[in-house]
Amino acid sequence: MGKLVLLHKADSIYEDEPDIVYDFPRSYLKAVDEAVCDWIVYYEPVKAGPRGYFAVAKIDRVIPKPGAEGRFLAMIEPGSFLPFDREVPRLISGRPLESALTGPDGTPKKGGAIQLAVRRLPEADFARIVDLGLPQDLERMEATRYDPQRDEVDDESKSFERPVLERLTRRPYRDVAFRRKVREAYGYRCAMSGLMLRNGGGRPEVQAAHIKPVADRGSDSVRNGLALSGTLHWMFDRGLISVAEDCETILVSHNKVPRDVVGRLLAPDGKLVRPADPRDAPHRDNLRWHRENVFGRALSGDPAPWETSG
Rank of each mutant, 00 (worst) to 15 (best):
G2L: 08
G2T: 13
I20F: 14
Y22W: 09
P25N: 05
S27D: 14
Y28A: 12
A31Y: 12
W39Q: 07
R51H: 12
R51S: 09
V56P: 09
A57N: 10
P66M: 09
A68C: 12
A68Y: 11
V88G: 02
P89E: 00
E98C: 09
T102S: 11
P104I: 01
K110S: 15
G111F: 06
G112S: 13
G112A: 13
A113V: 14
L116P: 06
L121C: 04
D125Y: 02
A127M: 12
D131Y: 09
Q136W: 02
M141W: 14
A143C: 02
P163R: 08
R171Q: 14
Y173G: 06
D175Y: 10
V176P: 07
R179A: 11
A185H: 00
G187P: 01
C190P: 04
A191Q: 00
S193K: 06
G194H: 09
N199G: 07
G201K: 14
R203S: 15
P204D: 07
Q207I: 10
A215L: 05
N224K: 01
N224S: 00
G225F: 01
G230N: 07
L232C: 00
D237M: 05
I241T: 00
E245Y: 06
L251F: 00
P258D: 03
R264A: 08
P275K: 03
D277E: 02
D277V: 02
P278G: 01
P278V: 03
R279V: 12
R279A: 14
R284W: 15
G296V: 01
P303K: 04
A304V: 08
T308K: 12
